[in-house]
Design a protein around this nucleic acid. Structure first.
Lengths: 218, 218, 218, 218
DNA sequence: AATGAATGAGTCTTCATTCAT
DNA sequence: GATGAATGAAGACTCATTCAT
């Protein structure tokens, strides 16, 4: 059973944002998502945030600073949620399901962010590119740590946790992107369930049982 | 055992490119990869292809046309290779391994392309964005078809193949990107093996064995 | 013998500035001198004057008003000093030397002003440009009057005093700028003496033979 | 007797400028002169040169590069003319007169340049400021060398030539600026003569006694 | 076909100035 | 009076694209 995401997700729904910095980030998220970073203009972001163009620069040094701050900020949020979920006492299977489900809920709330997050892999370089890479690595490490801990406890089969952390993240993001962003659907029990099964059997599966597969010629 | 990628990969090694169009695509791949689409300039691409800036426009209508053509072209190649691999008679397990291994070999040869491919998810919109989406969808469908066929034959457990196609592709791309592009390593037996195990148990895994997991409280 | 400049120079040493308007002018002088008028920002000036940015506008209508007021104010000071010096009873030669020496002392105290004064010849136009031109012309006229009077008294040869007033001022400013601002040296007896000789006798005239001038009291 | 300036001045009168780089410099000279460097816009310069805004950047890296190139280029011209004049065999007095007269002719042709030259003393800093300073210093050194040589030959009294080089330049520029730029008059025999007398004999020196100088051929 | 000089639309960014507190 | 957050006008500069050669 999936956890109720609304209970854990950050408490600043649109319309309740008194903080101007947050208003800018929210506007940027939307505009970057719609047009991509380079086709978005600072003026558009300012307009959407209902502030003057110059005001943006009181809160962020540059356009790319907005992007990086946005991603860092959201990744920090989702990382916290994942950690929280990972500590809830339950079975491994349930725990993995909860984490994946929670990510779907988060991405569902921040559909725009998911698109931005996945789009800016190669566009930004230099100092800011490094900050982005660090944020990404931070998230992967969180997953990695959880996997390691479960393997240690014998709850999961032995595998190279860091590689699989990337695989898990890649699988989840790809499905979430397709489902939530491209097809713009709501998080769907069946879809999540399919993804969870794939991931779980992948990380929990018993190799010996599968040797069989390699003997069935086709 | 992994297939020898060199036997199957496209036959236009550098230095053998008579076609100017291909020279442009190759140059664009490198430049886009290094700087990102928006920070790359047509002049750089032309310089790298050793042709005049104006000449580029004899072969491509616009800069974004180069990007889209590049991705379409490479996806067509990799799709053909996947199909080829999928038809080789062997066990399912071996077949999946071969396909994944082959993708690693391809991406290893076209590291630059992998970066470009993953970077431009959200940057391009309009007509060209649609062409990119179609190319991506085409590749997914190829995977989907293979999965469907294996499920039908009873070689894999039942699952929603399209969703899992995204998951597989996402997992593979994420690992390949991290391994080949970010850390710039060569394709590595162990890494590929880890990824294959994850994917195989994921798609072939036996649910019964896992029910257990959900009973182990922690 | 050079006059003691400290005796004649304006009486508002730093630290004793109660007037906020004066604080702004002093800060502006420094900032304009360091960065030039257009690269200076009102905020910097306000910061240096330890007041709020908005407060500046309580004392000056605009940034250019600060510049013009500064120059008008300093020119008024130096004009007064020149007049004062011109009235001290002594020989013409000594009087000219005293005036030039006094200018050096003034510029030495207000190095920053000298740079500002010489830099803004062409940058400001319109109403403010006219105010600057008037201030400059006022200073020239003061010199002109002194020259005229000395010529009348037969203390100097006959020449077109207004033209030579410009020449004198140009020569003095150029040397003072190079010496005090560019090379940041202290006023130097020898340097001033060289300049005075030049002004009095030119490059071909024979100073020794003119000692006579210094014996004619007035 | 003043030399015929038209014979020595550079041979590219307006309207005969085929070179685009020169067209830009000429346009910049005019625009910078009218509005000052910071109030001039690149677009204005381009318009006046009848080229596109972007074209300017094919010839100059930046706006400030235009200014510095302009000043460097003009100073090189005037320096060559001064040297040329300094080598013509005649008396010292005549030579000095010729040099000053020639400067007036040059500035008369390039009134706009004179204003630009005098205006940008303090506005430009960094690398470009240094290039400007070097150009200025180069011109001063040329004068300095001539003075030194004449002193050596005993044609002029002994003085610190470098200081007086600044004084001479300052006096000439100040008078030229007032006469040619501010009052927009043509070079005037009487005005130049007054300035020359001042430079040669100062305000106290006795011109008649020096007639001798004009009889010493060299 | 091939070229690259020329173009100008488009955007980030700065900063003087205002005004609500 | 003092303040500094907010503003938006303005301009340098880039670069995809064109076109005369």
């Amino acid at each position: 059973m999936a956890p109720d995401p609304s209970l854990h997700l950050p408490g600043h729904p649109p319309g309740h944002l008194h903080d101007k910095r947050e208003r800018i980030l929210d506007a940027a998220q939307k505009v970057f998502s719609e047009k991509g970073f380079y086709n978005a203009t600072v003026e558009e972001i300012a307009d959407l945030a209902s502030i003057g163009k110059g005001t943006v620069y009181l809160y962020f040094k540059s356009k790319v600073e907005i992007l990086v701050s946005l991603i860092e900020s959201r990744i920090k949020e989702i990382k916290a949620l994942i950690l929280q979920e990972s500590r809830r006492p339950t079975t491994v299977g349930e725990r993995v399901r909860n984490i994946i489900t929670m990510q779907f809920s988060f991405y569902s709330l921040y559909k725009d962010f998911l698109k931005v997050f996945l789009s800016e892999i190669g566009e930004i370089s230099g100092e800011f590119g490094q900050r982005l890479a660090r944020a990404r690595a931070d998230l992967i490490e969180t997953i990695d740590d959880i996997l390691k801990s479960e393997i240690e406890k014998g709850n999961l089969r032995e595998f190279a946790s860091r590689i699989i952390a990337y695989a898990l993240m890649g699988a989840t993001n790809a499905v979430a992107f397709e489902w939530l962003v491209k097809e713009n659907k709501d998080p769907d029990e069946e879809c999540i369930s399919q993804l969870c099964d794939f991931c779980l059997y992948g990380i929990a599966g018993a190799p010996p049982r599968h040797e069989r597969l390699f003997k069935e010629a086709i």
